[in-house]
Write a protein that binds this DNA or RNA. Structure first.
Lengths: 142, 142
DNA sequence: GTGATTGCAAATCTTTTGCACTAAA
DNA sequence: TTTAGTGCAAAAGATTTGCAATCAC
């Protein structure tokens, strides 16, 4: 009953987040949350969903990713001008970004330590610290 | 002769970067590089240039910012989905990003120290590490 | 002159929105 | 029912591109 287990996991996850478990949200959540951490763009998830015979529109994919993000189930990662990535790992961690391929990879939050960040100005508080390690291929690429 | 000094500084800067010193590039460079570190979006620089009676198109502002960036005179900072910032400080440093206002502020590179970043995969090298400290207002804003 | 640069408008790309339709509670 | 969610197509931004006109060398 793996399939049923997955389904109910995802179902309770949506319920816990206060999101109505619609067919599209359930299907997208299953793609996203089953099988480890993922980093997707809206377009990529849309293509993947279609390939998996999930009937959903691109607009709904965008809406859903933002709803999941607002609900704390995902995190938006900004690394590429003109394209947003969404990360199924919403805990505190950092990223490698492979500039040539556009691939994002997690760096566990505990492994990195930061010192010397100045305090934020009065009246403000740090909401998040992003560390993005941009990586490029060593060998010729042109 | 402050004005003349600024002009020749900017002129040699462009020449050193191998960029033909056209009227538009000179004028934009003067806006950008005179008077401290700046963080601009293409649109904002365009508006500023027009206000300063610099006759330039938005397309040229985009082109120029990218040329300056390729030449190492500036740096592109990605913090906001759907909008690019360009930073006149191209040396190694980090940023505060004020989420409500969209303002970016430098954090000197020396003040922050990072430990524990895993080595990049074989065949790749770190091209840059960005630390972005996202900040929000403490008081109500809704 | 000659090739690089610019301006303009059109094109492209990503993301958002309006609204009639459908589905969950 | 009643309200939230969805699909579609259109709209909105940001950025890029094609090409004729213009400028630097």
């Amino acid at each position: 009953m793996k399939r049923r287990r997955r389904f109910s996991d995802v179902l309770s996850r949506l319920k816990a987040a206060g999101l109505r478990p619609t067919r599209q949200r359930l299907a997208l959540a299953e793609l996203l949350f089953v099988g480890g951490d993922r980093h997707v763009t809206a377009e990529a998830l849309y293509v993947e969903a279609r390939a998996a015979d999930i009937r959903v529109s691109l607009a709904t994919v965008y809406n859903t990713l933002h709803q999941f993000t607002s609900a704390g189930l995902m995190r938006e990662v900004v690394v590429d001008p003109g394209r947003s990535y969404f990360d199924t790992n919403s805990s505190d961690h950092h990223h490698f970004f492979f500039e040539e391929s556009g691939v994002l990879r997690d760096i566990p939050g505990e492994s990195v330590s930061l010192h010397g960040v100045p305090p934020p100005p009065p009246g403000t508080a740090i909401s998040r610290v992003d560390v993005i390690v941009r990586v490029r291929n060593t060998q010729r690429s042109d």
